[in-house]
Design a protein around this nucleic acid. Structure first.
Lengths: 156, 156
DNA sequence: ACGCTGGCTTAGGGATGACATAGCCAGCAA
DNA sequence: TTGCTGGCTATGTCATCCCTAAGCCAGCGT
């Protein structure tokens, strides 16, 4: 995309912007990375801390925030012969962040990575997973193929 | 998505993770918001600062970082009868972040916004723009329809 | 020549985020 | 009952992010 979306003289996106509101929730690198780990299947405190590379206090604080915001939920569970523990699971709200993380991963793959790391594949066909821009009518979008518009009411 | 991608005992994503590398570049809220403004068509320093709501020093620092990282490029331009100024334009690397921002916007629309703000529409058909998870073979992905795999070599 | 404007930079300070180290507590295992 | 383990919490410190207020400089307009 090289074209601009709109010259936009009349309004500012400071207040009523969904991107800003989303970033109020997932505002830190550590928050993103904990969500990544949740998608990767991590559920336990210790694993979150070790795999993301965070200290215990930060891990505890971020996980609590994520539970408070409703992206994760904490539940008790118990393995046979062990005592009760807690685990963190993605809620629907949290799961809905997956496209954002995949989009970041795709960008990092292309521009910042040397080819290592992991990738997501479609189960069955085995092809690599990515995100695509599409409109609600199903058209794939080309560069510059979109316009900005003010919104009167949410269209869900 | 409720299923986990993989139990993952053997590896850690700390090091070789494209999401982490992407977040090393767009690590702040202000970086994301400046990129949003660039997509919205903002090119001038003063407009970036005002529309994102950042102070001059922070605006200057972030824009410089974005130019250094190659997401924006600075170029001189001149309106007739005015003196030479600089403007910031998206590079290909910067433009490639659009799906990430759209994904964030979509999430914010659904979970954090009350229906205000702006939206992206497909030019022509007018339908709202969003992101979709798809595999390289073109299949749309359902919840839990993917798996994690280590990667030997980048497949571009 | 003088001031105004746009695009910054400098200086100083507060809030937030991160770390390391240490400790607490519950509950099984011995 | 003692110790070990997992999941935290507490403390203190350093780094980062952002702010306000102020100033600098180039170049056009007068």
């Amino acid at each position: 995309m090289t074209g601009r979306l709109d010259p936009r003289e009349s309004w500012s996106a400071i207040d009523r912007c969904s991107i800003g509101k989303a970033l109020d929730v997932v505002r830190n690198r550590s928050t993103f990375l904990l969500m990544r780990e949740a998608f990767y299947g991590t559920t336990r405190f210790e694993d979150f801390a070790a795999r993301v590379g965070l200290s215990d206090p930060v891990t505890a604080a971020r996980l609590r925030e994520l539970v408070d915001e409703g992206l994760l939920e904490r539940e008790d569970y118990r393995e046979p012969g062990k005592r009760t523990r807690q685990r963190y699971r993605l809620t629907e709200k949290g799961s809905d962040l997956l496209p954002t993380l995949v989009a970041l991963m795709q960008w990092g793959d292309r521009w910042e990575n040397d080819g290592g790391g992991v990738e997501l594949r479609h189960q069955g066909c085995g092809a690599k997973v990515g995100v695509e821009l599409r409109c609600a009518d199903g058209h794939a979008l080309e560069a510059g193929d979109m316009e900005l518009a003010g919104r009167r009411r949410a269209r869900s």
